[in-house]
Amino acid sequence: MVSLLDIIGPVMVGPSSSHTAGACRLGLLARCLVGGTPERALLELHGSFARTGEGHGTDKALAGGLMGFRPDDERLREALDIIEREGLDYRFEKTTLDDEAHPNTVRITVERGDRKSVMVGSSLGAGRVLVTEIDGYPVHVTGNLHTIVLVAEDVKGSVARIATILSDANVNIATLRLSRKSRGGDAFMVFEVDEQPGDAVRDAIRGLPWVKWAFRLDKVSA
C-alpha cells in the first residue's frame, strides 16, 4: 500500500533517492552486522552504482551510513573527510557481480573489533533498499521495520520457539518470511518486528542449539 508520506518524502540529502538516500540506508544496515561503526570496510560497487556513483555521492552516502548518519544528515556531504579524520579505513572498488544483480548493488565487507561480515544489498529506487545476502546466506531484508534475520537447522517447532522468545520480550511480529533450500537443509527466517528487541533477545536466539547465525538490523526507512 502506498503511503502519502512515502510520496511527500523522504527528507533527504540530494541528489538521488536511489544513489544517495538508498545507499545511505544500505550503509546503516551494514553497520548493524558488526554492532556499530566499522573500523574497516570494503565497498564493492556494481552497475550504475559503479558508473555514476561518484557524481551522485554514493560513496559519501555509503560511508555516512556506515558511520550511522541518516539520509537527511548534512554530514553526508563531508563523509569522506570525516572517515579520514576519524582514522576509519574504508575502501571503494568497482566490481561486476553476476548478471542477475540489480543495477544499483553494493557488496559491503565490514569489520569491527573481532567481528566481520559481508552483506550484498541493492537500492531499488525512491530510497527503498533490499539486502539479498549476508555472509553468503540468501536473505530478504527491506529495512522498513526492525528485522531479525537468522539461519537455522530445519527442525520442527523452530518458528514457534523464536516467536515465544519474542512474545515473552513483548516484541510484536509484523511479518515473517520463511524459506529453505531443501527438506532438512538450512532454514532462513526473516522476522520484521514493531519494536527492536534488546541484546538479551538476540542472545537467547543465538543460544538455541539449532540456530547457526542470527542478526538484528535496524529500521532504516523514514
Partner: peptide, 18 residues
Amino acid sequence: EVNAAMGVIVAAPTAGGA
C-alpha cells in the same frame, strides 16, 4: 540546485523531481 549540491530536500515524489 540544492539537491544537486547534496543539500537537504524533500523527495516529492522523487529527488530528481523535487
